[in-house]
Write a protein that binds this DNA or RNA. Structure first.
Length: 272
DNA sequence: CGGCTTTGACCGGCGC
DNA sequence: GCGCCGGTCAAAGCCG
């Protein structure tokens, strides 16, 4: 009797493992497809630039005129009206505006960690239908998300003190704060790379902990079936997979915007 | 009491 | 010139 139960459990676990593998393969294919398209676009741009050496692309010159401007998106809960995120810096709000096309206000902040710091940021909140995913083993579904659109302007001229929720547990509380340390998902000049910063997709503070838990469980249990269960849970968790896909899509769309090309990833367009 | 947020006023740019 | 809009200022209020 026990043998039958064990065999049953083994089959169940094998099925789960197979399921997780299929999902993993599907996600990997999506990422590869996006990466290939990005590379193609990049090479196309290079060809165009080589062909048109007189009169370089307008988009590129516009970005070179605004090197300190960067924009990114942060997922929040639709009911969360705080209009703030913890990004390691201390900000003083100096204004707020209701805009015509958006019911949520736009907020203006200055960096208050140093009086002479010229950095400003502005936030506006949008309710978006971000994407529909076709995932193996999951029904087609639509995600309604509240998105904070942030625009950073300028460079910090001081060190940053990380907020508790962002501070690595084993490192010092201070890190150097050149512009690269701004928590930005998309830097305009980094068009060649798929730069996905999950910390800004709301994933880091929650799901990274899940990963750490998995690692800890691996250490503690040393059981392959438990590990498979954890992997299966993780790959089925939309809080893990959605931000990953979201970040990848945004990163790729941003690249296509830079290149002035409508990049069709085979996914439905986000609707505002 | 000092620092921060709120909010109405103000200013400059832009399109008609 | 006028109105609209985005961005900023600054006084008042709030809070620890």
């Amino acid at each position: 009797m026990d043998d039958i139960m064990i065999q049953y459990d083994v089959r169940k676990l094998e099925a789960k493992l197979q399921h997780a593998k299929e999902e993993n393969r599907s996600l990997r294919l999506m990422l590869e497809a996006m990466s290939n398209k990005g590379e193609k676009l990049h090479s196309n741009l290079q060809e165009i630039n080589n062909a048109e050496q007189i009169g370089p692309a307008l988009a590129r010159s516009e970005f070179s005129q605004a090197p300190n401007l960067s924009q990114f998106f942060v997922r929040t809960h639709p009911n969360d009206n705080s209009l703030t995120i913890k990004d390691g810096y201390q900000w003083r709000k100096y204004g707020q505006k209701f805009t015509k096309d958006n019911s949520s206000p736009r907020a203006y902040f200055k960096c208050s960690l140093a009086p002479s710091c010229p950095v400003k940021k502005k936030w506006s909140k949008r309710l978006k239908t971000l994407l529909q995913l076709h995932m193996v083993g999951a029904k087609k579904h639509t995600r309604y998300r509240s998105i904070l659109v942030a625009t950073y302007e300028g460079k910090h001229n001081h060190d940053v003190v990380l907020h508790d929720t962002l501070r690595p547990s084993s490192s010092s509380s201070k890190v150097s704060a050149v512009n690269d340390n701004l928590p930005i998902t998309t830097m305009p000049n980094h068009r060649g790379a798929m730069n996905i910063d999950l910390a800004l997709c709301g994933w880091a503070r929650t799901d990274r902990r899940v990963c750490e838990d998995v690692v800890e469980q691996q250490k503690d249990l040393g059981s392959s079936s438990k590990i498979e269960e954890c992997v299966s849970c993780l790959t089925k968790d939309p809080n893990f997979t959605m931000p990953l896909a979201e970040a990848a899509i945004h990163s790729t769309n941003n690249q296509s915007t830079l290149l002035g090309v409508d990049l069709n990833l085979g996914l439905p367009d986000p609707q505002v």
